Amino acid sequence: MTMPRPGSAFLLAQIGAHAAARFADRIGELGVVPSDVGLLRMIATRPGRSQQSLSEEMGVVPSRVVALIDSLERKGLVERRRNPSDRRHYELHLTEAGSHVMTEMRRLGMAHENDICAALDDKQRVQLKELLEAIAAQQGLTPGVHPGYR
């Protein structure tokens, strides 16, 4: 009796778990974890954004974002600045160290992408990305936000 071949959902989960573990290993040298990287990217793309806006975009309770930002602040990667128009709120900005981590992340991210997708040619990589984007959209996932924050 032959075992049935795994389905697409299993393969997505298998490759996703493998890719996530490899990514965590790669970025460990920078002193960050994958959840740090996602937040740093979100702050880097919109400097001065509020913790509330992060909470809304990520779909998590504000207290979760506060704890995540506290961790980044302790690592010296993010700073909270008082909002000049509303002193009750803070704006989030990358520090110089945070900007350096993001620069290194781009390099490591490209190496990771090339490693994980090494079996595919350029056309196949584009096709795979488009297929995965279609699945993510159909499943209602927020583009660029990992559901692991929840």
Rank of each mutant, 00 (worst) to 15 (best):
46 R>V: 02
72 L>Q: 03
91 E>G: 07
96 E>W: 07
70 D>G: 06
96 E>S: 13
122 D>L: 11
52 Q>R: 08
97 A>W: 01
125 R>K: 13
116 I>C: 06
66 V>T: 15
116 I>L: 10
56 E>Y: 13
62 P>K: 08
97 A>P: 00
126 V>K: 08
123 K>R: 13
121 D>E: 03
68 L>W: 00
114 N>D: 14
105 M>P: 00
101 V>G: 03
102 M>P: 01
47 P>A: 01
94 L>Y: 15
47 P>I: 00
62 P>I: 06
98 G>C: 10
114 N>Q: 15
53 S>D: 15
47 P>R: 00
89 H>P: 00
104 E>W: 02
51 Q>F: 01
62 P>C: 02
109 G>P: 02
54 L>H: 02
92 L>F: 03
82 R>V: 14
50 S>Q: 04
122 D>Y: 05
88 R>M: 07
89 H>Y: 09
58 M>F: 11
65 V>T: 04
47 P>D: 02
104 E>C: 06
103 T>N: 12
101 V>M: 03
124 Q>R: 12
93 H>G: 04
95 T>S: 03
87 R>Q: 08
115 D>K: 05
124 Q>A: 14
69 I>N: 00
125 R>Q: 07
109 G>N: 06
98 G>H: 12
123 K>G: 06
108 L>Y: 11
80 R>H: 12
95 T>L: 03
61 V>S: 14
67 A>Q: 11
96 E>R: 13
86 D>L: 07
94 L>F: 14
52 Q>G: 03
97 A>C: 02
73 E>Q: 13
89 H>R: 14
72 L>R: 03
56 E>K: 12
86 D>K: 08
61 V>P: 05
59 G>R: 14
87 R>T: 09
75 K>S: 09
89 H>W: 09
68 L>S: 01
48 G>Y: 02
106 R>D: 15
126 V>F: 05
49 R>M: 10
91 E>C: 05
95 T>H: 05
127 Q>D: 12
64 R>K: 15
63 S>L: 13
68 L>C: 02
116 I>G: 02
